[in-house]
């Protein structure tokens, strides 16, 4: 049984991927800097202040988060991750997207070949419901289906 949440499309696309959930703000620079700089193939999260994600692989995951926080290099970091093929499968925001994440997603959509659907405004219930490893399916219209009990 799946549960579907409707969000707003920031950059369109379709994908299915295992969920990786951050309940706190996602610090893009702190999360990506070491992995990108030193070619970590799994792109493990380097943010020691994020107990949900620290040291977990982010590559190809459906990253579920409330918003991004931290340095204004955030969008550039996300753009670079996309240009290098190190991006998450998609980014799913419970809140309306913040300016740094939007910048990264829009830069990637316009200036790279990467596909990374981004959906925002999925609501607090989405983040309460989704757990690491659940299977996420994103549709072009911003519908996000979460299937329970499926591991990646």
């Amino acid at each position: 049984m799946g549960r579907t949440f409707q969000g707003r499309v920031v950059t369109p696309g379709e994908t299915t991927a295992p969920a990786l959930v951050s309940h706190g703000g996602f610090n893009t620079l702190a999360s990506y800097q070491m992995a990108l700089m030193f070619g970590d193939k799994e792109v493990k999260c380097g943010d020691q202040n994020n107990p949900d994600l620290y040291k977990k692989p982010m590559l190809g995951k459906a990253l579920c988060l409330p918003e991004t926080i931290g340095s204004t290099t955030g969008g550039m970091v996300l753009y670079t991750a996309c240009a290098l093929g190190k991006q998450p499968a998609c980014m799913l925001f419970s809140k309306p997207i913040d300016s740094l994440a939007a910048s990264g997603a829009i830069l990637a959509a316009n200036w790279t070949e990467a596909s990374m659907p981004v959906v925002d405004s999925l609501g607090e219930e989405f983040l309460r419901y989704v757990k690491d490893g659940m299977t996420i399916t994103v549709s072009r219209d911003g519908a996000v289906t979460v299937e329970e009990g499926k591991e990646s």
């Binding site: 290099t73 969008g75 550039m76 300016s99 910048s103 990264g104 830069l107």
Partner: peptide, 9 residues
């Protein structure tokens, strides 16, 4: 000023 990202600014 908004909290713009690098490149966008």
């Amino acid at each position: 000023c908004n909290r713009n990202s690098g490149i966008i600014e």
